[in-house]
Write a protein that binds this DNA or RNA. Structure first.
Lengths: 222, 222
DNA sequence: AGCCGATCGGGTACGGTGTTCGCAAACACC
DNA sequence: GGTGTTTGCGAACACCGTACCCGATCGGCT
């Protein structure tokens, strides 16, 4: 029944009783739920309740929960506003990365999905095509371009993931522990880092993004 | 009860009935289970069964399942064989990254944990200290060094994660879909990538690692 | 107009999960 | 030897993803 990715399976059958809902509608409900209460709240029952129906009904639209997560992740790609390349790949990738971060800030659950199951649907494919267009002139082979795309997406997801958890309880505990270890005498460099501290509110993203990009492009066009 | 990270809580009480097991023993059982059957198989019941006891008993050693996952991830850091810096940071980071990849290949579940909850325990702290020692002479501020550590770990986890799933069913479906999209006429660059193909078995890791590292270190010392 | 074939809707049920509660058992110490 | 404290762990709870089944509902054909 589900031997292929969901986007290769027909959404509705051609004959029989017509469906009352659509994949898009269910995806929207799931995204709203995740935005409000986090990814763990996206259970089949809760999404179904959001639509005023029962959990079993969702399986008419989606083979399993992972399919739904894939739909959610791919749907966010519609929030890009892809512009034709300007001719300056580094600048274009900077803009692309910034947009990506903005989207992930809007959907705090997205980094987790990107990092653990990076599935590409129609939206992801369009995004990938755009990326390939931007890096078209660069002296990179096909594999390197694909690696670049994955690496860029992954890096931004990591940044957003970290940023989203920065104010959370887990991060508080982590720094508390590292501070503890830094004071045990056996980790002088770590202690030095804590001393230098300097958690100035400056946004580190642009600089980091540039570093990653220069690494990606093989230090051309800096 | 569990306001702090598990490594800041005493493993055993000083008085009363002595415990029959240890965190290390439980961690080892969980790691064995994960190595054999994957991370999803690491349920409290299954881990307990591995030790010939009941699920509830584990909660005397661990506050919840996430604590156990943190213990597992940190325990793998013991598999590093950290050597004193040679004076060539780029080379040292190269061997460090290679070791990291080897460990993640041994424990296919590790990348997921590193990517989603990058908690540092005693092992992670030692690793971080080692990293800081290696990059000590470089003209980077404290924040940049910490970012470099996170980025390096994250990148290697992504690589290992992708590599582990390369032969799997999900990846097969993904490429099947992308091939389908590449043939729809609307994604010429993607089609070009498929045409260039060239999935030669060459190991891409060393080159990729070098790229990421040069990006990290601000293109010094290449 | 009426039937028929096929799909949809969704209640119910199954097996599994993380976690809490409560109590009996086991030890260290006075 | 009693006592205080901790551990071991079966039972129970709430929730999860998912399979099954059957009545409801439609389009197309006769």
């Amino acid at each position: 029944m589900s031997e292929e990715v969901i986007w290769l399976r027909p959404e509705h059958a051609a004959v029989g009783r017509p469906a009352e809902r659509s994949r898009a509608e269910i995806t929207a409900a799931a995204i709203g739920l995740a935005d409000r209460e986090g990814l763990d709240a996206v259970s089949m029952r809760k999404v179904a309740a959001e639509l005023g129906t029962g959990a079993a009904s969702l399986y008419r639209y989606v083979a399993n929960r992972d399919d739904l997560l894939d739909l959610m992740a791919d749907a966010t790609a519609a929030e890009y506003e892809l512009r034709p390349p300007s001719g300056d790949p580094l600048a274009d990738l900077g803009v692309l990365g910034t947009r990506s971060l903005a989207i992930m800030r809007r959907h705090p659950w997205l980094p987790t999905l990107v990092l653990t199951r990076s599935t590409l649907g129609p939206g992801g494919a369009d995004l990938l095509e755009h990326f390939l267009t931007v890096v078209d002139g660069l002296p990179l082979d096909a594999t390197a371009k694909m690696e670049g795309f994955a690496l860029l997406q992954g890096f931004i997801a990591m940044y957003a993931h970290h940023e989203a958890g920065a104010e959370g309880e887990l991060m508080r505990r982590q720094t508390a522990y590292l501070a503890h270890v830094a004071g045990d005498g056996g980790h002088p460099r770590l202690a030095a880092v804590f001393a230098e501290a300097g958690d100035t509110g400056a946004d580190r993203f642009p600089g980091l993004l540039r570093r990653v990009l220069t690494g990606l492009l093989g230090d051309i066009g800096a």
